[in-house]
Every structure is written in structure tokens, then in C-alpha cells.
Computed example of a mutant assay.
Amino acid sequence: MQATEERYYKINQIVLMVLGIWPYQQSYFTQIQKAFFASVLLTFILVQLLVFVTTQCNAYLLLKILSIVFPFLFVTIKYCLFIIQADSVKQMLDRIRDDWKSLKDKVEIDIIKKYAHSIWFSSIISIVVLCACSLILFTLQCLPLILDVILPLNESRSFQLIVITEYFINQDKYIYIILFHEALACFVAEITLCGTLITMMTFIWHSCALFKIACYRMENAIEKSALTIPIFERQYLFYQRIIHAVFIHRKAIEFAELFTSNFTVLFAILIVVGVSSLSINLFQITLIDNRTEDAYIIPLLIAVHLNYMFIINYGGQKMTDYEKELFKVTYNGLWYTAPLRIQKLLLFIMLKGYKDVTLIFGGMYIVSLQGFASLTNAAISYFMVMHSTKK
């Protein structure tokens, strides 16, 4: 993206470039990046599942391992999704760039800048929270090792990894290597979750901006100052303004539909994995033992699940709300002062604006606040089923 909008999406670009999934950079080095990061995530899932090979499996151990495996599986699928759909992501970023270039009106440029700035600010907040959480978790994980250096005792303090893994090696001897693998996998997972979420919200928020611009154009299509113009000139002027409003509104709908069509199948898989992950982690709350790390890692995972689900569904809800605004703006305008042909045209626009434009994944799930409530209820229901079987 080489236009004015580049600075608003710079953070997102940097994060995706670090992960090797920036669609405009497809070099040999990025292929190595993708293979490396994907292997880090997959091997970390594998070493957790290998525990079942060497340890007698029970319900407690199964759920404890799955409570970490499922979030990493979610992130891994999403990382692979952005690799597979690199061309689609590039196509949508190209459309954003073209939309920026097509705007000439200062107010319209200010509108799209406002929404782009929201993404930029959200990116900053996400990166800061990511770094803070990573630092805190890593410090708590390595606290015994740090205290052994700062305040040494006659014997080393007991040290245990947060995640149960099996490497088929002496873990005490190679603890630093294992710790490095865990820290690297967590870092890759966190930055992947952050980068892909920002990209998705960029697409959703851009759709909202286009709908807002369409409303602005429609709101100013018929002005009192234009009523003094001769009838034929006035009719032509109104036609042109309405056409421009309909044009940008149609672009917004096409952009939203493109986003849905490109990601619908794999996002349906992510919904299943995400709800299952949240249910298992909710159940883990009831099984927390005396381990200090369990007391903060499980609630943190639940908070991440709920925040992620809410942010995505909130974006989908806002897009639907802005699309409906076109109907209200058209209805509350000066349509009654327009010629009869214009009034008939506005009637069709209101009928079109009255229909909901929604993000639908998997052909059944609507991204909205109601969808967020449905997913949360589903996760709680599965949690209650698991809890009812607890002895």
C-alpha cells in the first residue's frame, strides 16, 4: 500500500511482515518464515499431545492439556488461513487503497481517516497489552530461576512449566531449551492472534467507513439551496448525487461480501474450535488445584476468548447498524421536495437500505452482538454438560 492511508495501517503491516504473511512480500525468506512459525506452533501442540503416550490418561489430564492445545490449535488454523488466503487478503487491501484514492471530498476523506485512525489506535493498544501480558507471564514462569540468581538458597527452588509437555528428554537438564520453545510458541501465538485480529477489524471497519460515506452523500444529495435551480438542472444534479451515494454503498456491500466469501469455510471451523476451547477452559476453572500458575493462566485464557469473540462480533454489529443508517438518512431527508422521478428512485434505495447486510460465516453464523451471546451461551451450555458429569 503506497498511498496516504499507509501510515494508518503501518503497524498491521509490520506485524504481518514479522509473521511472514504480509501478502505484498512473497520472497524466499517469507517462505522460510511461514514454515518456521507454523512448525513452532505445530510442534508445541505435538509435544503436549505426546504426554498421552508416556502418561496414563485420565479426565483431569485430558482436559488440562486440551485447555492449552485448543487455543494454540485455533491460532495455528488462523495462521494457516492467512497463508492460504494471501491473494484474497491482498485483493482486499488493494480495494482499500483504491477506495482511498477515489475519494476527493474533504469530509469523506475525514470520515475514512477517522475509522482508519481507530484501527491504528486499537493496534497500539493491542501491542502494548500483548507485550505487558507476555512480560508478566514470562516473569511468573521464570520466577524460581530468577530468584535462584538474585536470592540463592542452599538448594534450587522447584520449577515447573505452565504447560505439560513431553519431549522424551531429561527436562531438568534441558529446561532452558524447553522453556525457550514454550516462550517462542507463546510469542508466535500471541502476535498471530493480534495481527490477524487487527487485519480482520481493518476490513470490517473499512466497510463501516464506506457505509458512513454513503450516508453522508445521501444526506446531502437533496439540499434546500438546490431547490432554486431550474427543474431540469435540479433533477440532473440530484440524479448525479444519488448515483454517487448508491455507488459507494454498493462498493461497501461488495467489500463485505468479498470478505465473507473468502473466509467463510475456515472461519466456521474456527467457531467450532473457539467455542470448544472456551468450554474446556470454563470447566478448568472448577478443577484448579494448588498450582499458582493455574490460578492466573486459565482466567487469562477465558478473558482472551471472550474479548476476541466480543471484538469480532461488535465489528459485525456496527457494520450492520451503519448499513441500516442509509434507510434512516434517506427517509429523514428532503425527499418530498424532489421531483416525482427522484422520489420513486429514493423509494427503491430505502427498500435496499432496509435489508440487513451482515457477515455470515459457515452459511449459518451471523457476526453480531446476538451472535456473541449465542456463542457464549453455547460455550456455557457445553461447560454445564461437562460439569454435570464431574464426580
Results as ranks from 00 to 15, higher is better:
residue 140 L to F: 05
residue 143 L to I: 02
residue 144 P to T: 04
residue 145 L to Q: 07
residue 145 L to Y: 02
residue 146 I to H: 01
residue 146 I to L: 12
residue 148 D to A: 01
residue 149 V to F: 02
residue 151 L to A: 05
residue 151 L to F: 07
residue 155 E to G: 06
residue 156 S to A: 12
residue 156 S to G: 05
residue 157 R to I: 05
residue 157 R to S: 08
residue 159 F to C: 10
residue 159 F to W: 10
residue 160 Q to D: 14
residue 161 L to P: 01
residue 162 I to Q: 13
residue 163 V to T: 11
residue 163 V to Q: 09
residue 164 I to D: 14
residue 165 T to Y: 01
residue 166 E to M: 05
residue 166 E to Q: 14
residue 168 F to Y: 13
residue 168 F to K: 03
residue 170 N to M: 06
residue 171 Q to A: 12
residue 174 Y to L: 06
residue 176 Y to A: 04
residue 176 Y to K: 06
residue 177 I to S: 00
residue 179 L to Q: 08
residue 181 H to K: 10
residue 181 H to D: 05
residue 183 A to W: 08
residue 185 A to D: 02
residue 185 A to L: 04
residue 185 A to V: 11
residue 186 C to N: 08
residue 188 V to S: 02
residue 189 A to K: 07
residue 192 T to N: 11
residue 194 C to R: 07
residue 195 G to W: 02
residue 196 T to P: 03
residue 196 T to F: 02
residue 196 T to W: 04
residue 196 T to Q: 07
residue 197 L to I: 01
residue 198 I to L: 11
residue 198 I to K: 05
residue 198 I to V: 07
residue 198 I to W: 03
residue 198 I to R: 05
residue 199 T to C: 11
residue 201 M to S: 03
residue 201 M to Y: 01
residue 204 I to F: 08
residue 205 W to P: 00
residue 205 W to C: 14
residue 206 H to Q: 13
residue 207 S to W: 01
residue 208 C to V: 12
residue 208 C to K: 10
residue 208 C to W: 01
residue 209 A to V: 05
residue 211 F to H: 08
residue 212 K to Q: 08
residue 213 I to E: 04
residue 213 I to L: 09
residue 213 I to A: 09
residue 214 A to L: 09
residue 216 Y to H: 15
residue 217 R to C: 07
residue 218 M to I: 11
residue 219 E to T: 08
residue 220 N to H: 10
residue 220 N to V: 07
residue 223 E to N: 06
residue 224 K to L: 14
residue 226 A to G: 05
residue 227 L to Q: 11
residue 228 T to I: 11
residue 228 T to A: 14
residue 232 F to C: 13
residue 233 E to T: 06
residue 235 Q to C: 13
residue 235 Q to E: 15
residue 236 Y to L: 15
residue 236 Y to R: 13
residue 238 F to Q: 11
residue 239 Y to D: 15
residue 240 Q to V: 00
residue 240 Q to M: 06
residue 243 I to V: 15
residue 243 I to F: 10
residue 245 A to R: 09
residue 247 F to A: 13
residue 248 I to D: 03
residue 248 I to Y: 03
residue 250 R to A: 11
residue 250 R to Q: 14
residue 252 A to I: 06
residue 254 E to L: 15
residue 254 E to V: 07
residue 255 F to A: 09
residue 256 A to H: 00
residue 256 A to T: 09
